[in-house]
Design a protein around this nucleic acid. Structure first.
Lengths: 291, 291
DNA sequence: GAGTGGTCTAGACCACTGT
DNA sequence: CAGTGGTCTAGACCACTCC
């Protein structure tokens, strides 16, 4: 059909890397196990030290192994994934309606729940800024209109590594009725953003999450303490009120090796008569479909 | 506060890469613009050719630039993202209830809509396999129980590059009542999976999407024609019937540079009395919160 | 054909890990 | 201290692009 998979000859780095990758996938190299040293690799494949280096470098950028000086590289142990479910949107809304004592007891909602609150240094920065092109388009307001910008950040006090990061934008016109909402020292606010919006009469009715992923830059990688080859998941959340008007957007990043985003979509029940009709004719109708 | 950002001295590769990255972020290097050649870089930074190489290699693995032989590297032009919205879950369900003529006209649902159907080679492979550990856990059935495995794939006929890929598992006990469902030649099935399930009396009521991302392996990268530094988004979709029983799981991969996953979460309306109460007391209550 | 980046080699120094 | 991987250099060959 096509020219063979090896037009001339696969680079040695790729051949080495693929061989190791297959050993990992077959389980010959268990998570945590040590790889051959560079010297051993360059001997076994009779190539230069730097070519063996290139092979393990490739595996590193793919997140399959970890490497460090003075120690043979080892197969990566996949960390636990923290689950962030869209069901929390409804939970948060329910919580926003409860009395304050109850809200405070459950903690505030923007916080990363992966570790105890005492173990992270939480910070929030509020400011009123002019809406840029991007934010304006998402919120459906004029470019340059004033927006409340809230930046939430949690870092591990021991390592200074980022644990969570998000930026939220709300049209200032919506929230200036309650001056308390402009004061960052009121964070963490029991009940979260949805309760804050309720204090100015805004009820969130729909939340849209837009998810993509990309590789971190070098500085992002070290701020998050990301191993090589771990993407950042980017999630933009837009909240709409009962008039389908966007009232808040929130941009958040999550390290892909520790995060799973879960979205729950309830479907409307179908008309029982229509279901019955399909069950009756389904068999024949389906077969007729074949061309 | 902390030791200065440069404990000893940053590697030259990083310094070069960071300088170029900043030029890109500031806009000095527009998307599509050419970078300095390796010779120019090694001259400007008075380092070896290979060090300059290392710098652009880093930028490549971060997806910021594209490189190829014989041509200076250039700033990556971000491709258009195809949006896959969870709203299609409801659309698909509505469609499943329509007459066949209508269903056929709208095309089938598993197909990638980013390009015309005529321009892709679609293939599906059906088989009955024993459920493995992973699938069993997700479907809540015994390990080894028979499941219908459906693999959907679309490739670009010109380049042999993958356009979409997904694997679906359904407990065989659910679908064997309709033999037509076991025949892959019935694909594409008008109305999609939800209509197929309706023919055996199963109505999907909830869909849960679990999203993560990871870097592709070398073979995945070339199958999808992924530029360096582009993660794969992995989405596991689990469909539940009215008894909250999982009836189908589907694992799909999407190239992160061309895909945006959108999830719409409708929230239940709150009790008007509760809202009014918060609006009344909100201002004072919020201020009291300050510690 | 001149110039480009991709791959590879050989050899060097350094930072770090073990014993 | 010996051994490891990370970084860097100098030089080579090849595949490719552009003129």
């Amino acid at each position: 059909m096509h020219p063979e998979r090896t037009p001339v000859e696969a680079p040695i780095q790729l051949k080495i890397a693929d061989a190791i990758r297959m050993q990992i996938e077959r389980g010959d190299l268990a998570p945590g196990a040590s790889l051959p040293t560079l010297n051993e690799l360059s001997d076994q494949w009779s190539c230069s030290l730097n070519s063996a280096r290139g092979a393990v470098a490739l595996l590193r950028t793919q997140g399959l192994i970890t490497a460090g000086r003075g120690k043979a590289p080892s197969v990566r142990i996949p960390p636990r994934r923290a689950v962030r479910s869209s069901e929390r949107h409804q939970v948060e809304k329910d919580l926003a309606l409860r009395p304050e004592a109850e809200r405070a007891a459950l903690g505030e909602a923007e916080t990363n729940h992966a570790m105890s609150i005492a173990e992270q240094r939480f910070s929030s920065r509020y400011s009123v800024v002019a809406s840029d092109q991007d934010v304006s388009a998402a919120l459906g307001i004029a470019v340059g209109a004033p927006v409340l910008r809230r930046q939430f950040e949690a870092v591990d006090p021991r390592t200074d590594h980022q644990l969570s990061y998000s930026v939220s934008h709300i049209p200032l016109a919506l929230v200036e009725a309650n001056p308390a909402l402009l004061d960052e020292t009121n964070e963490p606010w029991p009940g979260g953003t949805q309760h804050q919006l309720l204090t100015v009469g805004v009820e969130v009715m729909t939340i849209v999450d837009e998810v993509t992923a990309r590789m971190p830059t070098t500085v992002e990688a070290q701020r998050w303490d990301l191993p090589d080859g771990v993407p950042l998941i980017f999630c933009r959340r837009v909240s709409f009120d009962d008039a389908a008007r966007p009232v808040e957007i929130s941009d958040a990043y999550y390290p892909a090796d520790r995060t799973e985003l879960r979205f729950v979509t309830p479907l409307r029940p179908a008309d029982p008569d229509a279901i019955a009709a399909i069950a009756r004719e389904g068999h024949t109708s389906a077969v007729v479909t074949t061309r």
